[in-house]
Simulated scan of single mutants.
Amino acid sequence: MTSQANQAPATQARKIEPVSLTKYPPLNEVTRDLLTTDETAFYLGLKPQTLRKWHCEGRDVIRPVYLGRKPMYRKSAVQALIAGEVAA
């Protein structure tokens, strides 16, 4: 008699892609001038809530531009902040 109770079922290995390759393209390949809060947070390595908190607290690390009620961020300001310059 053979017992199969202790054998784990065979599973297929799943391929997991990094978020950067699946969700957002590299910043230098983005052709739009304005970025959403989620995109900006991704490129800066922050959570979107951090950008919202900075805005509510009056920290002008990076200032949003509004389209209606939706805050958007200039691509040039994001690139300047990444480069270590003061964003306007």
Rank of each mutant, 00 (worst) to 15 (best):
R63H: 15
M72L: 14
A10N: 03
E17I: 09
L21I: 02
V19F: 12
R32E: 15
Q79D: 07
K23P: 00
V86F: 08
T11I: 05
T50W: 01
V86Q: 14
I82R: 07
D33V: 10
S20Y: 08
K15V: 06
P9D: 10
A41Q: 06
N6V: 01
P48V: 07
W54C: 06
S3L: 10
A88D: 06
Q4E: 13
L67E: 05
K75Y: 04
N28I: 07
E29V: 03
G58E: 02
L27K: 11
Q12R: 13
K53R: 08
P48I: 05
K47D: 12
V86R: 15
I62N: 02
K75P: 05
A88W: 00
V65P: 09
Q12L: 08
I62C: 08
L44S: 06
E17Y: 10
E85H: 15
Q7F: 15
T37S: 09
I62R: 01
K75Q: 10
P25Y: 12
A41T: 03
K23T: 05
V86A: 14
A87D: 06
R52P: 00
H55I: 00
Y24F: 14
I16D: 03
R32F: 04
G84L: 04
P71V: 05
K70E: 13
K23D: 07
E85W: 02
P25W: 12
R74W: 11
A5R: 15
A88S: 13
W54D: 08
Q49R: 07
V78F: 10
W54F: 09
E85V: 00
G68Q: 00
D60N: 10
D38C: 08
A83V: 01
A13H: 05
T36A: 13
L46S: 07
G45C: 12
Q12H: 03
Y24V: 09
T36W: 04
K53D: 08
K53I: 11
G58M: 08
A83R: 12
P9T: 04
A13Y: 01
Q79I: 14
R32L: 07
V61A: 09
S3I: 04
V86S: 14
N28K: 10
P18C: 04
T11P: 00
T36Y: 02
S76N: 13
L35Q: 04
T22D: 05
R63T: 15
A10K: 02
G68E: 00
L46I: 08
M1F: 11
T50C: 05
A88N: 08
L46A: 12
P64T: 01
K75N: 09
K70I: 11
A77L: 08
P71I: 05
K47S: 10
Q49E: 13
P64N: 02
R32A: 13
Y43S: 07
R32C: 03
G45N: 12
N28S: 14
E29S: 14
P48M: 09
E85D: 11
Q49L: 02
A83H: 04
L51S: 03
L81N: 10
T22K: 09
V65E: 09
A5W: 06
G84W: 06
L46H: 14
T40C: 15
V30E: 14
T37H: 00
M72R: 15
L34C: 01
K75I: 12
V30Q: 12
K15D: 06
T40L: 07
R14S: 10
V19L: 13
R59K: 15
K70F: 06
R59P: 04
C56R: 13
A10S: 02
L67N: 06
P18N: 14
T40W: 02
L44Y: 06
Q49K: 10
I82N: 01
